[in-house]
Amino acid sequence: MPENLAKFCPGCGYPITLLMLNKTLEKLGIQKQAVLGLDIGCALLAWNFLPINTFQTHHGRVVPTMMGFKRARKNSLCVALVGDGGAYAIGLQSLIHAAKRDEPIMVIVTNNTVYGMTGGQTAPTTLNMQITPTSPQGNIEEPFFGPELLKGIVKEGAFLARTAVNEPKQLMEYLEKAIQTQEVGHFSLVEVLSFCPTNWKTVGTQTIDKLNGLKNVFKLGEL
């Protein structure tokens, strides 16, 4: 059960990921060791949501913070929750190097193709020709594929995968694998395709249709 009411927008995908994370930690009996670091962006809203140790960091800086934490407390289970902008734009340098060094931390990236907190601006994951407040004529870039980029960098034993908030079974399976990966001392990243009806300006089934459409661009599965 969550500790407090969710602070996310109605219809946000984040609480699904967080509740699945909590369920997985519960199932494995490791809530006490878990430490959840939050990037700034919508992830920050999880600061008192789950009954586990949680703190906020800075935009793009949750990965090096959790690296410092994990190296200091090796028996902890360090989870970095970050958006696609925090992970793949402003924090990419740290993400790449943490992956390359095989830091035993678990990174959960929410990919909803936009900067949600600031009003839906273009993110590294924004689709080609997607219209956003900072790409009013449509995004001229191709989207960024985080797990695929890291694939060529990580060491043997690391875990990289992509799933979606409406694939609960797979989401839980990947979160569990990511936790197990940390337990044996390796880096893991799970990208979760998520919806943002507030900034997508979608209602009802439009939101689900758009999310399912993303799966054609961002392939689900383990890498």
Partner: peptide
């Protein structure tokens, strides 16, 4: 670290852990 930004936040993470 890869830069001073990471060094600074790693210090933050370490001190949070004590």
């Amino acid at each position: 670290t890869e830069d001073e930004i990471a060094a600074g936040f790693a210090v933050c993470g370490a001190v949070l852990a004590g």
